[in-house]
Design a protein around this nucleic acid. Sequence first.
RNA 1: CGGGGCGUAGCGCAGCCUGGUUAGCGCGCCUGCCUUGGGAGCAGGAGGUCACCAGUUCGAAUCUGGUCGCCCCGACCA
Length: 593
Amino acid sequence: MLWSNALIPTQKESPADAVAPSHVLLLRAGMIRQLGAGTYTYLPLGLRVLRKAERIIREEMDAAGALELLMPALHPIELWEESGRVATMGDVLIKFDLGGDRKVCLGPTHEEVITDLARSYITSYRQLPITAYQIQTKFRNEPRPRFGIVRTREFLMKDAYSFGADVEQLNASYDAMYEAYCRIFDRCGLPYVAVEAESGPIGGDASHEFMVPSPSGEDQLIRCSSCGYAANVEKAEVGTLAGPSPNSDGAPAPTEVQTPGQRTIEEVAAFLKVQPEETGKLLVYLADGKPVAVLLRGDHEANEGKVRRAFGAATLEPADAPTIQRATGSLIGFLGPIGLTIPLAVDQAVALMPRIVVGGNKEDIHLRDVVPGRDFPIDRVLDLRNAAAGDPCPRCGSALEVGNGIEIGHVFKLGTKYSDALGATFQDAEGKTRSLIMGCYGIGVNRIVASAVEAGHDANGIIWPLSIAPYEALIVPLQVDPDGEVMKLSQQIASALRFAGADVLIDDRDQRPGPKFKDADLIGIPLRVVVGERGLKEGKVEVKWRHDSEAFTVPAEDAPAAIVQRLVSARQELADRVERRAEERTARRGHAG
RNA sequence: CGGGGCGUAGCGCAGCCUGGUUAGCGCGCCUGCCUUGGGAGCAGGAGGUCACCAGUUCGAAUCUGGUCGCCCCGACCA
């Protein structure tokens, strides 16, 4: 491809409202253009990246035995009423009618459609297990699209669904998808981590997220650099906290203090001149509809999944103000653990505090010098909060680290939620009718693009991984006279690269070298070849990898072959690394199993 | 949905407070000359319903009211 024939509208200045590096650079490199909130056009360069990621996904999904199909984006609303998700998805579901009573929605995901397909065609255990996938545009009315193509209202997703006759088949499908995901992200050159994620009532190892660490990520990621433990903040466990139990000997009795209008932890701490970590906060939830209380250190965040499990409940929701008053006799802002009549669970961090400031269960009253165990019961001490930086790792006890990550993939054991709702059943070997056991597996294709830029850029522009770069090689002739030696050699190099199966872009624009080099760095093509009269006089052609700081030269006479050789070995290195990592995973599983 | 900010040329911005020539500047774009290994220089030029609607006024980019759109923080995110 000749640059002069391409549409690559690079920009020197970045738009004011772009914040994330991937957003700024994809715009400046002329790869995307915003149309509205959360909707982007992919220009030719950006589309090439998207297509390359898709291709890798297809190859690995096919290799894993998944079957590609394509489902509609337009769904009859009845299907979503059947599953109950018209209500649960709320405004995120984009609904409209086609005139008359024909109500439809745009698919935000495809569990309903695939399950409808399965209930029609899958009738026997002999057809199982089976996994199907598609790469398709999804629509979600996101309340807040952000960070360029990280969160959009319209996005490209690879979604796969497995159907099995039993849990063993589900686990095998899940493991195959997990492995395929690792291979996909390795091949895309992304520095991802697979983390345990909150999996709802199914529990166990039923859900993993694949995350690329990045400050622009929306999810919080907990990691242990010592042992490699990694988890979503929703799921991360806090290791057992060590420390002496509170000793009440000689401690003063609790005293009431006036705290008029001081409701939040920040207000109370500032008013009483103590640190938030010296206070406690009592939260009231409805666990399966019954009021329960949890006590946390003031600066900690409750983890609703942990709280729900602590009370053995199927559902958990924050209690509203009237319910709280009925259950505790007190007002929000002045709640405390003393004299409660509803079940109380205490976070382990609180149980280790020698003294604590808590609400007095009376308006405008807090209590100082409250001692856990003496002044309120600590018979139910558990891990109830989100892990924070510095907490002990649940595996090895080292300090945990907290960072952000972009979720690029998610694998999830669904069970029979949708097959039950839609009546997708099969007959087993005994002739009994049973529900299909499902798994679902998603990859955000646009997020592969965004996270590759987040993970690969410098002050000058994007640094694409070779496997998903819009072009693998960029040839920069500095003199563009079509009959000149420079252009002739450039064309020869391009031909040789194309013969080796490479994508090549030739910057044939009649520009001074400065802008051509700046644009080359900005769009981030991995291999840059500069052919100029000055170099040719010395019989040299300059070659530079975008990820290296230094260029090197090859003799002009065998430049085409030499450059092809460099590209071929770089591809091979990447392929070798993918296989090596796959072997490492196999070895680890061998140890574990 | 709460809080904050912004809509003026493809991009970045000034002008608005204090209403009054033909609405400016930089980048980019077009023509010519010149230049050619890290965003050169000179000369000429094209490009705007000043987001939209209504109002105030002799007169509105500028003042008032409303609407729409976009960004950031928070809430939300199978």
